[in-house]
Nucleic acid binder design. Structure first.
Lengths: 204, 204
DNA sequence: CAGGTTTTTTACCATTTGGTAAAGTTACGA
DNA sequence: TCGTAACTTTACCAAATGGTAAAAAACCTG
């Protein structure tokens, strides 16, 4: 066992990252219970006990991923500027969410899996990390509405709808691929649609 | 084993339904791999081999549920009337989807689980059942837009956004419950918001 | 390059899990 | 009410799975 509070070696850092990368794809696709240590091991070219050498259990890998995810995932929310031009700030946020959905579908699906299943390992994190950020954002948006810069509406549901629409493209990709097989222009069409949609909704 | 093509007895019908009901809740919450036959058995007060007496395998239960789900799930789409008033037809559809999200969250989550994981058992069904219906609907909406009754936009993405927003309330309930704890008016607020939103988007 | 430390590999193990065999029990039509 | 078919229960089993022990190999530092 690695002694506690010891700075990780190069190999540690590297291999932990390899494990995370393999596990992310598998957990995102098959869920926590649906993924086996053997699968993860094979996906990153290691042996099962080696995983346990780097993470003390399968659950530890999952938790580690969820923790990392939370930070990245919330960065677009943090990037909103209360002093910016309201409509442009909102559309910028929406664009960044669409971009994340396209660039990091595994992360999106990992998150979706966790929440759909009742957030068994993430509820405290939602409460302590997401909620304050969410509430701050609600405040900013409310002030923008008060100032007449955005149409008046329920700000929480507005954010939910943004999350719903943007993440849908990653989480339900399997369905979209069946219904809209024209692969090439799909992302463009989605971006344009979503921007148009929220422009209409948000315009004061 | 029951002889093939034989009409089911009263007990058959009853118990198969009990099993479906228990399995639906568990599959929706824990996913296919995350649910065990023992859990299902306990949830419906039966013994494991008894489940296998009624369904030939765990997978058979899952498939049975997905098949039943598909029909119910698509009924609101079918209920749209090509000769109705376009905006009201669309809003009616959206209202029915919100209602289903509220009344049948287990079904919504079962579906979400399946799609997020790449629809391993449902892809053919999506292709053969959902896709034609979807395309027919695209046609109807396109004609409405051509007639100037709805704002012009990409009809497929419009439908995706409706699905995304309405199902979000069932699928991500765990998250919403954390962020919007005021339990009583939540459904009302959601309904009003969604209606307002799509009214703006769809108005010609 | 020697010697200890870190990392990897092989061989296991206990539990869980999907499923079966077969005996026992209940329901139901003749 | 009797016999048979439908249903339930008990006792299992083989494979899969999360995890451990400990030897072997690779790595690093003085």
């Amino acid at each position: 066992m690695t002694s506690p509070a010891r700075k990780p070696s190069r190999i540690q850092t590297e291999n932990r990252q390899r494990i995370r990368d393999a596990a992310l794809g598998l957990f995102a696709t098959y869920g926590f219970r649906g993924t086996t240590l053997d699968q993860i091991a094979e996906a990153c070219g290691m042996h099962k006990p080696n995983l346990i050498y780097y993470f003390e259990s399968k659950e530890a890998i999952h938790i580690d991923l969820l923790n990392m995810l939370m930070e990245e995932w919330l960065s677009p929310l943090n990037a909103m500027d209360p002093d910016g031009e309201p409509l442009e700030e909102m559309l910028g946020y929406i664009r960044r969410k669409m971009e994340m959905s396209r660039l990091y579908p595994r992360e999106s699906r990992l998150f979706a899996n966790e929440i759909v299943q009742g957030a068994p390992r993430m509820l405290p994190h939602l409460e302590s990390t997401l909620k304050p950020l969410f509430n701050r954002q609600i405040g900013i948006i409310t002030r923008w509405m008060d100032a007449g810069k955005l149409a008046r509406m329920h700000p929480a549901h507005l954010i939910f709808s943004i999350w719903a629409v943007t993440q849908h493209y990653a989480d339900f990709e399997a369905q979209i691929a069946v219904l809209l097989p024209g692969d090439d222009k799909r992302a463009r069409g989605a971006d344009e649609f979503v921007e148009m949609m929220f422009r209409k909704v948000l315009a004061p």
